[in-house]
Design a protein around this nucleic acid. Structure first.
Lengths: 215, 215, 215, 215
DNA sequence: CATGAATGAGAATTCATTCAT
DNA sequence: AATGAATGAATTCTCATTCAT
């Protein structure tokens, strides 16, 4: 599978970027500090110190403190996130997995790994989302792409097979997303390790069977 | 049912408190502004203006800006939230609802209403949670109370009845919580109305049946 | 004559203003420093030190450093300057001076006194004028008022009397202004005392007679 | 007449200088920017951008930002200005113009042209003069040279002829200067075209005859 | 010679907090 | 209790200047 290393998406994009080593250090320091203390409680002095550069250097590339935040979040929202989704869809669509349960488990595992690999960006994104209602709708728009993607047709096949309930795609995704969230949120927010194998198995178990006893 | 008016819990607590009208105005203004712009992006000048009092008055009661945040969040976390849970549990325990589906629907509807009634506090709580990992565990501890409450025993009956899968209580609650969250989060973060009746019905439908076709 | 004390126009306006003593000190300090070193070379720290207040106090009233400049120049351009002109016109119009020479001498003396009394503001105004072309036209508009005032009619009488050349009012004023300027500019810019009596006598002597020998 | 093209004095001095093309571009860019926005409001970044060179290049030749200002003003004050005066004097002294009116008109026309050709430098000079009292006396010293030059003797002839009032030379020059200033200042500060022929004719008309009606 | 990344001192501005009235 | 002027530390941001490449 081509997308096993989401981990390095941000680091790679840094390396490939035309940013100097110091500018990359600024971004990395900002990522850590924003994630830890929040954007507002991080001063540009903090960033400069952590990146071991002068405060002037922080501003050379990014003009404003807000510019740093954008340099972190915008590629994440508009490139990393969509790219991750797209790569995922392509892989999945080519999959020959017979049952939806198997498919779902791989998919969920995959997404969980991605989320944990990008904890810091996600934490920052969550911080901003709780403060700026506009971001919610912005993200929502990106989410719609999933439904309108080949993945949609792929899932619809399972519905025709009778393996999946005949609800609107959005509703189905919503529930899976919500369940996955219960595993991810605590880890993203408070840290700690997640047993992804176990978590994805449990997720599929619940999501597919509900809370009814199996008899 | 005794707990139909969570809405006014905060307002009531304000009225009953020994706070003067101006001090109450400060709290109300802070609630609105913190919720809208976030704590760090709200200045004490903003609060004074919105509350139509002097900046000195803002400090008379609450000593520090942080004190205002605490005045909002601490009673919410330690009193409003638990109290809401407790009242809810008592009511529920006395309930004679036969099936878990009926019980769950009422419970979910109830909780959704509470969340929407307290949107602003929840938004502020979310903001702080994304910044302070400690808050996550603090809230988690409060959540444990639910499991160790009479409600726990109440739910366990359904498991014994064979109406509910035999998983640890925490896991069951986790999934219900996650599903409810998918309905609430967008409204709490971005605003908009929620058809609670429909949402709670759908939630129960999924949570109890999973994504397997009903046929 | 009512307008002998232009000197105190600024000070009076400070006293009458609702500004606190410290805020007045800020304005006074700014006036001195801007005049001495120029706006751009004066820091708000300089102002705070000279006014013996904190830097925060400098911003309490005037919001921005530019706001201080406006607080000094705008009343000067739109109130002090026009008021000085108006008062002057009223006095002059009531004058019963028979010859234009006598009239001119009083007028010139009067204006020179005013300029010296307001050296500092004028210096600041000159600084800004050399940097902002818009200010030139703004001041020009105020100047037009002189021509369209009762003073105009007053002067025209002298033209009808045959005491004054029959040129457009603007041209006449332009030349007087230019000649007065040669006495004032060095004093406003470089300091030093001006013998106003002598200067105004000489001005009239030249302006009325030109450079032709008197014989 | 040798001095018809003061215009190019600065450009020529640039061309003849041993400055590289880029260094010349720096000077030209600085001239424009200082004139437009003032020295303090022009950053070395601005200059580098306008000159299409790197910021390092700006410093290669001129060491400091102040050095650029000096590179513009010092030759202007000590060479361009005096040279212009000298050339002018030589021409004038060789003139055979019989009447002072004719002589004055040519002289004034000549000076006005020079001022307009060097608007930008003059604007910068004015800016600095309003800030630095020392510059006033420095310029004054240069002015004294005119009086102590052959031109002095030349003018004194007109006084002996009875064509010119018997005042100290300085006073006579002061008045002419002031009158010329009323035509030049608005154009130098705010821009716009000047009808030099008309302006110089009017200047002589006033200066020689004063404001007395010609009868 | 030229470049432009990097520097760090200092500038404007904000803001929580105090306190005399 | 309430006011709001005053504070000063901290913060964001600018800019002249340097220097390795």
């Amino acid at each position: 599978m081509a997308n096993k290393n989401f981990t390095t998406l941000f680091s790679e994009s840094l390396d490939q970027s035309d940013l100097s080593a110091k500018q990359q250090a600024v971004l990395r320091a900002s990522l850590e500090l924003f994630s830890q203390k929040g954007f507002d409680r991080t001063s540009t002095r903090d960033i400069a110190d952590r990146a071991a550069v002068s405060e002037g250097t922080v501003y050379k590339q990014f003009k404003t403190k807000d510019g740093i935040l954008k340099a972190i979040l915008e590629p994440f929202i508009h490139q990393v996130l969509p790219k991750a989704v797209t790569e995922f869809i392509v892989d999945m669509s080519q999959s020959t997995t017979p049952t939806i349960d198997e498919f779902l488990e791989i998919a969920v595992k995959n997404r969980m790994q991605f989320a944990l690999d990008n904890r810091q960006q996600l934490r920052i994104l969550l911080q901003e989302i709780t403060r700026d209602a506009n971001l919610v709708s912005l993200i929502s728009k990106e989410a719609v792409n999933i439904i309108n993607s080949p993945l949609g047709n792929f899932i619809r096949k399972y519905q025709e097979d009778g393996q999946l309930v005949d609800w609107p795609l959005q509703r189905i995704i919503q529930y899976i997303f919500g369940t996955v969230l219960t595993y991810l949120l605590p880890k993203v927010l408070a840290g700690g390790e997640l047993d992804i194998d176990k978590a994805s198995k449990e997720t599929v178990e619940f999501v597919m069977g509900g809370l009814k006893p199996t008899k």
